[in-house]
Simulated assay, not measured.
Amino acid sequence: SARLLCERGLEQVDGGWTWRTDARLRITSSLRLTDEQVKGFVERITAPTLLVLGNEGLGGDGRFDHRIEWLRDVRVTRLPGRHHLHMDDPLPVAEAIKTFLG
């Protein structure tokens, strides 16, 4: 995943390379939603939803599992990996999506 991120983020300039990114991504967000606010948004999702989680990624420890029950029609797929599991091992992610859409 690091290679993909670097290929996407590097830009050749006179004299070498530079990292091109949106500087706003480096700033801590001033928007912090409470669980109740998140619940208000999530409960209004009516479409069938696929949630693909990396067992070792953010939330892989179960800290957000209580939010899953807020979704009306959700299929949860837990795969080995972290935040970038779709880049580290894309085939299981693609298979989960194909199965969900099939």
Rank of each mutant, 00 (worst) to 15 (best):
A2R: 02
L5P: 04
C6N: 11
R8L: 03
L10Q: 08
E11K: 15
Q12P: 10
Q12R: 14
V13G: 09
D14E: 15
D14G: 13
G16C: 14
G16R: 12
W17L: 10
T18G: 09
W19D: 06
D22W: 01
A23R: 07
R24Y: 12
L25H: 15
R26K: 12
I27L: 14
T28I: 14
L31R: 13
R32P: 15
V38Y: 10
G40T: 07
V42G: 01
E43K: 10
E43N: 07
I45K: 14
T46E: 08
A47N: 09
P48S: 10
P48G: 06
P48T: 10
T49F: 05
L50M: 08
L51F: 12
L51P: 06
V52E: 04
V52M: 08
L53H: 01
G54F: 00
G57D: 04
G57R: 01
G59Y: 02
G60Y: 01
G60A: 04
G60H: 02
D61Q: 03
G62W: 03
R63K: 09
F64N: 12
D65A: 07
L71V: 15
D73Y: 13
R75K: 09
T77G: 05
T77V: 11
R78Q: 07
L79I: 05
R82N: 04
R82M: 02
R82C: 03
R82H: 02
H83E: 00
D88P: 01
D89E: 11
A94W: 03
A96F: 15
T99N: 07
F100S: 00
